[in-house]
Design a protein around this nucleic acid. Structure first.
Lengths: 229, 229
DNA sequence: CGAAAAGTTGATGGCTTTCAAGTCGTGTGG
DNA sequence: CCACACGACTTGAAAGCCATCAACTTTTCG
C-alpha cells in the first residue's frame, strides 16, 4: 500500500517534494511516452513506491537515484545508491520491493519488463536467483540498519522458520547455527543474541526441545516483535 | 589473499573445521569430478574463500551454506544464508567477493561459469547489473553490520568519491544528499552523521568548499579510518 | 528581509558491547 | 561407566558508543 508508505514518510519528516504521483508517471500510463524514451525527473521526486506494480524497468542516463524501504513505524533504510549506467526496478515479483526517489534531477530510460520466455533457461534461472538475492539483501539491510537487537533476532527466527519449510518436523525448526554465526549475521555479539533468545524463551515465545530445535507456539506474537508490523 | 582471511577467522575464533582447502576441491582441480556432478561437503567446511578465482558456480541440492566477508581486523559479517535450490558464486568478477562455508552437511551441483556470449545482449547486461548490485549489497551489509559510526561515514564518503568519477571537477565531490538521507543509508541518526563530518572537517581529512561540495586532500589518511585496511 | 528547513552542537540516557564468571553439553580416556 | 576437558552457551556488572532531547546557527527560498 504505497499511500501508507508515503504517509509514514511524511510523518517522519523525510524531505520529499513528491506528495503524489510524479507528472511523468501520469503521462506514461496515458500512453504519451513510448518505450525507451528518455525521461527527465526533477530532484527529490518519487519514481515508484514499494508495492507498486512492477511494470517498468529503469536505466539512469545521468543523475542519481536512491532505493529505500520504510518500516511501518517510519524507520527508513536506503538500500541502494545509483548513478549513471545503473538500472533499477529489476524485480522478478509483480511488485517493487522498495521505493525509488531521485536524489538530483535525473534522466533515465524506461522500458517494459523483459519476459524470460525467449532466453536460455539456465540464464533465466540465474537471473531469478540474482533478483531473489537482491530482494533478500534489501530486506537484510533494513534488519542491519534499522532494527533493535531483539527485532533482529526475532526477524532471523521468523526467516528461518519460513525458509525451513519441508525440513522441519511438525512445526519444529532446526537452528543449525552457532551463536557466533547468528551474531555475525545480525551485526550483534554472541552475548546479545544469547540474551535475546533467553528472553524470548522466558516469555514463552519460542520453545526449545533440544539445543538446536525450537518451535514457535504463537507466530503472530513473535511477528509483533519483529518491527515489520 | 584467502590465506590471510582464514588466518583472521582463526584469530577471532570463528568455528571452522576447514583449516585448509576442503578435500573435494583438490579432487575437482585434478579433474576427477565432472561438471554438474553432485558434490557432498561436510558441516562447517569452506567451499571457497573471498579472493579465490571464481571458476565455479554452485547450486545447493540440500543443506545450507553461509556467505560471509571478513574485515582486516577480523570482524565478520554473514551476507547470505542459503538453502536448497539457492545458487551462489554468481559473480561477474574474476574473484569471489566473499567466502562460502557450509552450515550443515550439504550436497551441491558444481558447474563452470557460463559465459555471456550466446545470450541476448539485453539479458546479459541485466545479469551484470544484478551481479554488481549483489556485490554492492554485500559490501553495504558489512558497513551496516560491523562498522562504527565514523567508519560508516568515511566508507560512504570514499564510495561517493569513487562513484562520482567524471562528475567531479578537479577532485571535488558533490554531496548531493541531506544528512537524513546519509543517516538512513548508514543506519545512523542525522546528529551522529553531522558530528562525524564535523570531526573529519576539524581534523582536515575533508574540506568543504560549499555546503555540498568537498574534497579529500589525503585519500589514504581517510581510508585508514574506513575499517577496510 | 524573514520564515522555514537543514544542519550543528551540547547534555543526558539507554541499548549494546565488553569483560568476567559462571553453567551446560558433548566427546574422550581412564 | 564415569571423570574430565573443552567448547558452546549463559548470565551478571560495568563501560562506551550512539540515540535522544533540546537549543542554537546556518542556509535556502519566497
Amino acid at each position: 500500500m504505497p499511500t501508507a508508505i508515503l504517509a509514514n514518510m511524511e510523518s517522519r519528516e523525510h524531505r520529499s517534494s513528491s506528495a503524489g504521483r510524479p507528472a511523468f508517471q501520469a503521462a506514461r500510463s496515458s500512453g504519451e511516452i513510448a518505450d525507451s524514451t528518455p525521461v527527465s525527473v526533477r530532484e527529490h521526486e518519487l519514481v515508484f513506491a514499494e508495492g507498486d506494480a512492477a511494470h517498468q524497468r529503469y536505466e539512469i542516463i545521468d543523475g542519481a537515484v536512491m532505493l529505500f524501504r520504510v518500516l511501518p513505524d517510519g524507520r527508513r533504510q536506503l538500500v541502494e545508491l545509483l548513478g549513471p549506467g545503473d538500472m533499477f526496478g529489476l524485480t522478478c515479483d509483480a511488485e517493487y520491493d522498495c521505493s525509488a526517489e531521485t536524489l538530483v534531477a535525473t534522466r533515465m530510460r524506461v522500458t517494459h519488463r523483459l519476459d524470460c520466455s525467449q532466453v536460455p533457461a539456465s540464464m533465466c534461472r540465474m537471473c531469478r536467483q540474482l533478483q531473489k538475492k537482491v530482494a533478500d539483501l534489501h530486506e537484510h539491510s533494513v534488519v542491519l540498519g534499522r532494527k533493535s537487537a531483539m527485532e533482529k533476532v526475532v526477524s532471523f527466527l521468523l526467516r528461518l522458520a519460513a525458509m525451513e519449510t519441508g525440513r522441519r518436523a511438525n512445526g519444529h525448526v532446526r537452528l543449525a547455527m552457532t551463536r557466533q554465526e547468528m551474531a555475525d549475521y545480525l551485526g550483534l555479539t554472541i552475548e546479545t543474541v544469547s540474551r535475546s533468545l533467553s528472553e524470548l524463551r522466558r516469555r514463552g515465545l519460542i520453545i526449545f526441545e533440544k539445543a538446536d530445535w525450537f518451535h514457535i507456539p504463537d507466530p503472530q506474537a513473535l511477528e509483533n516483535l519483529s518491527g515489520d508490523f
